[in-house]
């Protein structure tokens, strides 16, 4: 019972803050709303026997990625992209309708599915989310993925340094 209440609060928080991210016009407030979504999703992870993933979600997403966003938003300022009437209204309405249709189709498909285990409460979880289990999975079964992700991070760091350097050169060259 307590689990259901916690899930309901976390799900409402996640979807509500996501709606905030999509609709708020001030980039700073949208980023703060994203923090709310990320924390709610971390609670959802905790309810699904994934404490390590929840901690990493908060540390990496809410604690580092959004901080990076906030830095860039503070740096770039908040002037609106264009001055004048916003021709977006009709486009936004069309897109909202389109996505709404997709969501409706998805809902119908989901609620009518007869796949086994969809509606049953989760069975008792084994030791799937503890650091030991995840560590063993990374080192034992999925070691290739582990190495690949470290390579991805290295390339991203190099790319960021390169982008920053090239921008500075571009400025001096002009």
């Amino acid at each position: 019972m307590g689990e259901r209440i916690a899930f309901a609060i976390a799900a409402a928080g996640a979807l509500g803050c996501a709606a905030g991210v999509v609709t708020l016009s001030n980039p700073f407030r949208a980023a703060v709303s994203l923090i709310g979504t990320l924390l709610s999703v971390a609670v959802l992870f905790l309810l699904a026997a994934a404490p390590f993933a929840a901690a990493i979600q908060v540390i990496v997403y809410a604690g580092a990625i959004v901080v990076l966003f906030l830095f860039v938003i503070a740096y770039l300022g908040e002037r609106p992209p264009r001055i004048g009437p916003d021709p977006m209204g009709r486009w936004a309405f069309l897109m909202a309708t389109g996505v709404g249709v997709l969501v409706a189709l998805g809902l119908i498909g989901l609620l009518r599915s007869h796949l086994p285990g969809m509606r049953a409460a989760f069975a008792e979880a084994g030791d799937i989310g503890s650091p030991r289990a995840i560590g063993m999975a990374f080192v034992d079964t999925h070691s290739l993925v582990f190495e690949a992700t470290s390579l991805v991070l290295l390339i991203a760091a190099l790319g960021a340094v390169l982008l920053a350097r090239r921008a500075v050169l571009g400025e001096r060259g002009r």
Partner: peptide, 8 residues
């Protein structure tokens, strides 16, 4: 994951 929670 006690230690990680403090970092979070």
């Amino acid at each position: 994951v006690g230690v990680l929670v403090l970092f979070a």
